[in-house]
Structures are given as structure tokens and as C-alpha cells.
Design a protein around this nucleic acid. Structure first.
Lengths: 344, 344
DNA sequence: ATCCATCTTGGGAGCGCTCCCACTACGATG
DNA sequence: CATCGTAGTGGGAGCGCTCCCAAGATGGAT
């Protein structure tokens, strides 16, 4: 056995036991454990040896009770099951958040909020201050959670924002710019009747993508046609159904900008059903550049947003906010990028 | 006086404050909060009113310190980033686990373990008993974590198992049966040279799927041909590269059973590159029936495993194990199902 | 030799809760 | 009428840690 140095006793050793073994007081052990500089080299060595011999690990509950810190943060995802399952966006966020937290001693709580009951549970949880901070993604305009976070003075960083004048810290992608790039690309390919399938417009991201679409058309001097704007909900099914409506209403359309890749995947299905060839008859651009974009037939031209990096950045901001409560607040917009594949 | 002042309203009421307000002792409040029956109706009413008026929420750290329970469980995913991102399996597990935990007061910690450093961090964490139990998915044969869990006598449930004689509780799918069904289906469609792309064989699930493949061929009286067996790693890229090798080695193959949908997606790409039509020239079956199965071209025939249900079940078993430490242990195998689509 | 600033150190005082035991009140029992 | 449960209650004794303060060591300046 390679763990000969640790003689695990039946009960976990306490800080007091370490102090006794090292021949010092509790205070000194506590200082060593917490990296205080006010400890002599000799005392530090003795304590470190005792810790190793006893296999001491601090009791977090006792520590929390005194410091009222928990050394954990929550990632809150307020979405229906249906969306989480099919949305690679969340996996990427989780990957980034988890990776960044691994650099620290903080732990990650994952909290999915699907209905009113679960929101109440979360409210209780946050009121009890069982985490030091909160990352909240997929923010809807009327979501009561951001307000709750403010009221509780809980350090928080949003992924996305409620509106243009968001008071909390956030990280989000340049949705408007991405959408403009997408539509410009379609126009540059000679498309003249470019439609869009939006996301849920109670999300600023969806709203911004729609605005970007309109801007790009305006820049090109095209007459706005509201008949070419149809409302989806970021899901595949929504994309399919909305595309059908759109085809019925404007059979002449030759390009579609979809507010998400899943939407675009659905739209491709509807186009295939309708016998339209992609990209020959109708060119399609998605948004997110998620994994699905590479699996559709044809592969999807899409707008890449640095989702994982957004997760990492959210964590960095949150940690700063936790370190300086009430003082630190920052709002970051990350650039997007057009990724051209077969669909447009 | 440069420090921020504390709002009086920001001071959280303690159990003692509730007791004072309700005109009872601490013990009685504690009993009410914890649902003990040994409280008179009158006292209970008074306490409940005081709790409501004060907005009392118990302090978990103080509770933990005494009970040494944490009311949280960890979901541990020991996988590289690359896999997590593209593997819908994990999203489904998370959805199931989170949904089931929402029925309780337990919280979910998500712990991704990517390298040795992160494993050490987890070891410290578990040694400190900062969770009441652990769910461990994607178990590899030589993974040191299950052993650690046993040594720490930590309640645990595996998703999958290390081998046929697993000592810990687990939930897994009938991988062998699923693989057999897949291969039988290919044979029933008249395929005579059926290859397989395996998963990483240090995982029992991958091994069992390979065994199922062999069994089905044997049942059909076919001569085993090891040249038709190629080793992948569950990823898309692995599927693509392995399919290329396979085509080079056995150009006559007319069917492929892939050990995961992502593998199959990669295989489809390689087949397309090679100018083989699917399913006309080569029929393909995947495993998992994940979301990607519906997006490939052609859509993927696959073996469905009830991933989300597996997550739920794992939680149920874990909670029982936490309730009866050392007594409860159960191993569950769930059925799989062939889902036929265009690829075979 | 004396004094004082600085560095270390030990340990008391809780943090907010549960556990447990002693104690009360009151109806039932002999 | 004394005795005995029994349901209900209050509060002391910690859980293991950090915070803080008083006090001892150290060493340079006078």
C-alpha cells in the first residue's frame, strides 16, 4: 500500500488534536492551515508534520459556522427539462465554470429550476446563504431571481442580461453583432428574401439577435417585411413549426437566419419536408455554433459564441465580487464569429 | 469607520430568537423545525408563527456541525472535457439526478474530475465528508475512486459498474442485450459482414457491448472475424478515424454496430467521405439513442437506454443507502430498446 | 542596562444548532 | 389519596473552528 504515511483512526482528527501533537496551540494550527504569514518557520514545520501524520482535514461546517462563508457557489439554470437536454450551450457553460472553479477551493452546486416549487426551494436556499455567490444563466426579462439576488446582496454574475441597463454583473456575447454578421453573409451570397426565426423575445439575447437582423437589412437598404419575421423559442420543434409557417406565408424566401442552432436544425427538417434544397433554394444560418451544427445535413453555417470561455469569465468575476462585496461589478461583452459551413 | 455597516434587517434570526418570540425554549423550536411529533399543537402554532414573522431559516453549518450530515450529494463525472461537451449522456443523467433530488431537501454538487490534481482535490473533499453520498458515473475498470468510496465507507451508487462482480450499488443498462438486438437487426436486414466500433474497453459497458456483438454473430452461426472489430473511444472523432481503418481493412463490410451515437456520427462522416451510401451500401446502428441520433443524415437507428431514469434511480438508491448506512446495497439493470430509423 | 516596537503565541469566547436529560403537569391507576 | 406513567418542555453541554486579545519573546535603539 502506497499510503503508509496515513494511519486513519476511527474518528477524524480535529484541529485540537493536531495542536496537541505538534506541541502548539489551536491558534497556531489555524494560522498554518489558513496560510497566515504570522507563524515561525519552526512552528509551521511542526504543524505541517502533525497534519500529515494525522491526515487532518478541516471541518468545513465548523469553519462555516464562524466565518459564514461556505466556499461554494451555485450555478442556477432556470429552464425546462426539454431545453436543457437538447441545448449544448449549458454543457459548455458547465464545463467552463467547473474548469475555472477547479483552480480554487470552491465547489460547484448545480441548481436546475423548472417550476415555482423549485424556485421557492432556491429562494430558501439563498436566504439561508448556503452559497457564497450565484451564477445565473438563461436570464429572462421577467425572471424574479436577479431581483432576489440584489435584495439578498448576494454576489452574482449573470450569463446574459435582463436588458440594456442591467445593474448586476454579467458576461454575454455580442448577439447583435453576430446576428448582423449572419444576415450580411446571407445577403452577400445574393439572397434577397431573408427571413428570421427568433428566440423567445423575453430574453434579451433573442431580442438583440432580432435587432441585429433588422439592422443588417436596413444597412443593405432593404425594405423591412414583418412577414419574414417569425417567433420561435430556441428549440428544435419550435424551429420546425415556425419554418413551416414561414414557408406558407412567404414561399419566395431564399434565406433564413435562425436564433439558435437547434432552431436551425428544426428549420432544416421543415425545409426538407417542403422539398426545398439547402443551400441552393434556401440558405440557412444558425447561432451558437454548438455541436449539432456539424451534424446536420447540410452542416450548419453558424455564429460562434465562446460559451465555455463565458463560463470561465463568469466565475472570475464572481470570485472578485465575493472578495469585495458591494464594490466590484463588471459587465463584459464577448465577440462572436461567423463560421461558414455548407448550409449558407 | 470605512467598513460597510450592517443593516439590522440583514441579521438573520437564530433559533434562539424564534424561541424568545414564541415564548418557548430552544428545544421546542428545534423539534418543530425538524418535524418531531413530541410537540403540543399550541406550542407548534406559536413557533410556526414566530418563524413566519421573523423569516427564520435554519443555519445549515450549525446543524451540520452537530449532526455531521450535509444534506448534499455529489455527482462525480471523471471525464475529459472533450467527452463531456459532446456527450448528451451526461446531460440526461444530470437532468434525472437533479429532478429526483428536487423532491427532497438534498442539494447537488457537480464535480468534474479531469486529471490527477482534480482527483486529489476530490479525495480531500470526500475525506472531509463534505457530502452525504456520491453518485459516480462513467466508471473505468482501473478507476481508483470506487475503492476510495469503499474505504471511506461513503454511501455511493455507480452509473455502470467496474466489472461483473461489482461490490458497490449500481444502476446500469443491459448493454449486452442492447448490442445483441442491434446486431440481430443488422443481420435480419440481410447484412453479412457486420463490423463493430467499440468503446474504450476499460469500461465494462463497452466490453459488454462488444460481447453482445459477438454473441449475436455466434447465434447466427457466423464465423468470428477479428478484422471486423475495431476500437474506438465513444467520441465522434474516434468513430471517424476507426471507420476509415475498418474500410481499408475490410472494404466488403456492409454493416456497422457502433458502441455510441457519437461514434456512429463519426462513422457516418467517414462512410460519406468514402462514397458509401447509408444504409444502401453500409447499414449503421448506434447506441444511446441520444439527441444526435435524430440529427445525423440519415437519422440513426440506435439502442435506447433510459438515461434520465437511470439518474433518478441512482438518486433513489443513494438516499436509501444514506438512510441505512452499511445495510442497503442494490444493483439494478435496466432494459434497452431498439429504435429503428433510416440508417439501418 | 533599560525601554519599546514587533513578532509569535496560547487559549477564551463564542458561532447556531442538536442531543439528551432532568423536570413539570396531569390524568390514570390501585 | 398516594403513586405512577407519559406527553411535553427547557436548557446545559458540546460539535470544531476562527477571531481576538493579552502576554511572552526577541532584538534593536538609547
Amino acid at each position: 500500500m502506497s499510503r503508509a504515511e496515513q494511519q486513519p483512526s476511527a474518528v477524524r482528527p480535529t484541529l485540537e488534536a493536531v495542536a496537541a501533537r505538534a506541541g502548539v496551540g489551536r491558534g497556531t494550527v489555524s494560522r498554518v492551515v489558513n496560510g497566515s504569514p504570522k507563524v515561525s518557520a519552526k512552528a509551521r514545520a511542526a504543524v505541517e508534520q502533525a497534519i500529515a501524520e494525522l491526515g487532518y482535514v478541516p471541518n468545513q461546517a465548523a469553519r462555516s459556522l464562524v466565518t459564514s462563508r461556505t466556499d461554494s457557489v451555485a450555478l442556477v439554470i432556470p429552464e425546462s427539462v426539454a431545453r436543457l437536454r437538447s441545448e449544448p450551450y449549458f454543457s459548455d457553460i458547465i464545463t467552463g465554470v467547473s474548469g475555472e472553479l477547479a483552480e480554487t477551493e470552491m465547489q460547484l452546486l448545480l441548481i436546475l429550476v423548472r417550476d415555482e416549487r423549485e424556485r421557492e426551494r432556491l429562494t430558501r436556499y439563498l436566504t439561508a446563504r448556503r452559497v457564497d455567490g450565484v451564477l445565473l444563466v438563461s436570464v429572462h426579462e421577467d425572471d424574479p431571481l436577479p431581483e432576489l439576488l440584489e435584495r439578498l446582496e448576494m454576489p452574482a454574475v449573470l450569463g446574459g442580461r435582463r436588458s440594456g441597463e442591467e445593474s448586476l454583473s454579467y458576461v454575454h456575447a455580442d448577439n447583435g453583432g453576430g446576428a448582423r454578421a449572419a444576415v450580411r453573409h446571407l445577403l452577400a451570397r445574393g439572397r434577397t428574401a431573408v427571413a428570421t426565426i427568433t428566440g423567445p423575445l423575453d430574453m434579451e439575447a433573442a431580442e438583440a439577435r432580432l435587432a441585429g437582423y433588422r439592422q443588417a437589412l436596413a444597412e443593405a437598404g432593404l425594405e423591412p417585411d414583418e412577414g419574414l419575421v417569425a417567433h420561435g423559442d430556441f428549440t428544435e420543434r419550435g424551429g420546425r413549426e415556425t419554418m413551416r409557417e414561414l414557408l406558407e406565408r412567404r414561399p419566395e424566401l431564399d434565406g433564413v437566419f435562425c436564433a439558435s442552432d437547434m432552431t436551425a436544425a428544426g428549420a432544416l427538417q421543415a425545409l426538407r419536408e417542403a422539398g426545398r434544397r439547402v443551400p441552393e433554394d434556401v440558405a440557412v444560418v444558425g447561432f451558437d455554433d454548438s455541436a449539432v451544427a456539424r451534424h446536420t445535413e447540410p452542416a450548419l453555417t453558424s455564429i460562434r459564441q465562446p460559451t465555455e470561455e463565458m463560463g470561465r469569465l463568469m466565475v472570475q468575476l464572481l470570485l472578485k465580487e465575493i472578495a469585495q462585496p458591494g464594490r466590484f461589478r463588471r459587465q463584459v461583452v464577448l465577440p462572436t464569429e461567423l463560421v461558414v459551413r455548407a448550409s449558407a
